[in-house]
Structure formats: structure tokens, C-alpha cells
């Protein structure tokens, strides 16, 4: 966090007093908004997505990274296979019950700030395979999704539209309010368990209660 006492050269006192966005107790801390801008500007143009394909949508994701759509224009082309080096998870395809523990584990391994794009109908809400017995109806049952892109599969342009939307979202974030600088902001999702069926461990008490004959 920026120190309240250090002033960037060139910031005038008039600005400090007149900026209505600054709360009273941080009145002389105006450059924090400027820092937000720089911080977000850098962040939004150098997302490192995780090289992580699930199903059909992954093919369109690869096409997005290829010559015609060229993800590098966004500065997002550096796909990292390791979750520890990635800050964006593109859930590109059908999330199955067998796969969801791994997805959640990967998410937990990603450093914050981390973002999730649900690409395609399947990741958004189950998609055409929603009724299947091994299909999770939407990754948002487990992970906080930032952008949903419906379509089966979304065109590369649609995926890029999602990127633009995510950039917009990042732009609006402020250092003061983002969760990962707050105490207890590290929200680790418990990895679901595979028992007789997929078990969301956050609901285990409820399950035990309800199934008791």
C-alpha cells in the first residue's frame, strides 16, 4: 500500500482536497487513484492465462491465440501451464465431476489476484450436456467467475470480447478495496470430494443431515 506521507512529484495539494473519491481519513492520499490506474493499466495488459483446455472451447481458445486472432495484441499470449505463474483461468469446456477437484486445486494454486473466465455454455451453466450425470452445471458452483461467455463454442471474437470485458473490470478495481490486500482475502475453495457422487465439502454437514434415514 502506498504510504500516505509520500507525495508523487507534481501532485498538487488542490487536487488532494477536491477529489471527492478520497475518504476523509485519506484526504492527503490522493495519488492512490493514480497508482490504481498505473497498477490496473499494467495488469490488464499482461494477463497470463493458464494453458488449460478442457473440451471443444479449448480449440477455439487455441485459435484465438493463433495468427488470425492473435492474443498477443492484448499482451495476454503468454500461456503458462503452471498455475503458479498464471493469473487467469479460462475454463474452456465442459466441467465434469471427475475433473472438478483438479480445477479447484489449480485455482487454489494460482496466486492472487486471479480471475476466472467461464468460456462457453458448458462452463457457464452446464451447456448442452447439463443433464449428464457426470457434468457440473457451471463452474461458478465452485469458483468465483468474473466473465461468462455463452456460446457453443464461442467464436474467437466472442472470447476476445470476454477479455475486453475483463479488462474493463480490472480497470474499475481499486487497490484499497481488492480482496487480496484485505485481511483474510485469500479465499481458498475446498476441493470437492468424489464419493458416491461429487461432494461439495462446504455442504457436507447438510448432506449428512439430509441423507440420514
Amino acid at each position: 500500500m502506498a504510504d500516505a506521507e509520500t507525495n508523487l512529484p507534481g501532485t498538487s495539494a488542490v487536487e488532494i482536497k477536491n477529489d471527492p473519491r478520497v475518504p476523509a481519513e485519506l484526504n492527503n492520499n490522493v495519488f492512490i487513484t493514480t497508482l490504481d490506474k498505473i497498477y490496473n493499466w499494467g495488469r490488464k495488459r499482461s494477463m497470463w492465462p493458464m494453458l488449460f483446455g478442457l473440451a471443444c472451447c479449448a480449440i477455439e481458445m487455441i485459435c484465438t491465440a493463433a495468427a488470425r486472432y492473435d492474443l498477443a495484441r492484448f499482451g495476454w499470449e503468454l500461456m503458462r501451464p503452471s498455475p503458479r505463474q498464471a493469473d487467469l483461468m479460462i475454463v474452456s469446456g465442459t466441467v465434469t465431476k471427475k475433473m472438478v477437484p483438479q480445477i479447484v486445486r489449480l485455482y487454489n494454486q494460482m496466486p492472487q489476484p486471479r480471475y476466472v473466465i467461464a468460456m462457453g455454455a458448458c462452463a457457464t451453466g452446464g451447456g448442452p450436456f447439463k443433464e449428464g450425470y457426470n457434468v457440473v452445471s457451471g463452474i461458478d458452483k465452485f469458483l468465483p467467475v468474473d466473465v461468462y461467455i455463452p456460446g457453443c463454442p464461442p467464436r474467437p471474437e466472442a472470447l476476445m470480447h470476454g477479455f475486453v470485458k475483463l479488462q474493463e473490470k480490472i480497470e474499475k478495481q481499486s487497490l484499497r478495496t481488492v480482496s487480496w490486500y484485505q485481511p483474510g482475502g485469500d479465499d481458498v475453495v475446498p476441493v470437492p470430494m468424489l464419493g458416491p457422487d461429487m461432494v461439495d465439502l462446504r455442504r457436507s454437514a447438510e448432506i449428512a443431515e439430509k441423507t440420514r434415514a
Partner: peptide, 8 residues
């Protein structure tokens, strides 16, 4: 129409 199910 549920677009999160629609398969286009």
C-alpha cells in the same frame, strides 16, 4: 431461452 444451455 437459456443461453447457458443453448448449443447454437
Amino acid at each position: 431461452i437459456d443461453t447457458s444451455v443453448c448449443m447454437n
